[in-house]
């Protein structure tokens, strides 16, 4: 599999009147095509900075981020649906931004909405949807431009635990179905183990890679992985590494 994203000794410094903050230091890792990589780290370690660097929204102070010209879709902690737009209009938003509002593209987005159970809500406003359905709509909006790589910034942290488990199962099934490369940032170790092919552990700020683990689960379904005996062993190992 070819590499779609590569961080080479990346450093990111923020400058304010109060001083300079080093968010990320000498960070190196790569992500291969169709791989699902989970990145875990303590709160405030620079995880979101890392995603912004990957998406090209920030330029590194030092080092290089290579993405080989692939396209990215960004999914944030909250669904960030626009309350004044219907679900259909929210799903078309990326097409409008990129001026790709063709009938063909719209039909593709509507087909995704139908496939993943949003058809009946297309003319509704976000306020009429449950938290889980809203996250599903946010994912389909992210998929609207058919991006090569999905950048997921703690996408379920705003949901309650029960909803998170069920939505996480649904949403990651969609991502696997659509055969997307994904980079998940989370502080939830369980979530990372339940979905990722590989987990990268970051240190406290400034973030550097302290460990990388390829997970050897045969199941890809998050809920089934949680039932696997190896799940708790991985959890303990990652917990120790995070708190080292």
């Amino acid at each position: 599999m070819k590499e779609v994203l590569r961080f080479d000794n990346v450093c990111m410094h923020y400058h304010t009147k109060q001083g300079e903050t080093v968010a990320v230091k000498d960070l190196s890792f790569s992500v291969k095509e169709k791989e699902f990589v989970g990145i875990i780290g303590p709160s405030g370690c620079g995880k979101t900075t890392l995603l912004s660097l990957a998406a090209g929204l920030l330029t590194p102070s030092k080092g290089k981020v290579e993405n080989g010209g692939v396209s990215f879709g960004y999914m944030l902690q909250k669904d960030e649906l626009f309350p004044w737009r219907t679900i259909e209009k929210n799903l078309f938003l990326p097409l409008e931004i990129k001026r790709k509002c063709t009938d063909e593209n719209k039909a593709r987005v509507l087909a995704l909405a139908e496939k993943y159970g949003l058809k009946q809500f297309l003319k509704s406003y976000p306020s009429a949807l449950s938290g889980g359905m809203r996250q599903r709509a946010a994912l389909i909006r992210t998929l609207a431009l058919d991006p090569n790589v999905l950048l997921l910034d703690e996408p379920f942290s705003a949901l309650d635990y029960q909803t998170r488990l069920s939505v996480c199962n649904d949403v990651y099934a969609i991502i696997r179905n659509e055969q997307k490369t994904a980079l998940l940032i989370t502080h939830d170790i369980s979530e990372a183990i339940s979905v990722a092919d590989r987990i990268i552990v970051l240190s406290k700020r400034p973030a550097t890679v302290t460990a990388t683990h390829a997970l050897d689960f045969t199941e890809n379904e998050p809920l089934k992985r949680r039932e696997n005996k190896a799940f708790s062993a991985w959890f303990e190992l990652l917990w120790r590494e995070l708190n080292a």
């Binding site: 998406a55 879709g73 944030l76 938003l93 990129k98 431009l145």
Partner: peptide, 18 residues
Amino acid sequence: TDENKILLLKSMGASKWQ
């Protein structure tokens, strides 16, 4: 205006006008 929504639009490649 919600900073996260601005970030979302920027990630889609939106211009300041958009």
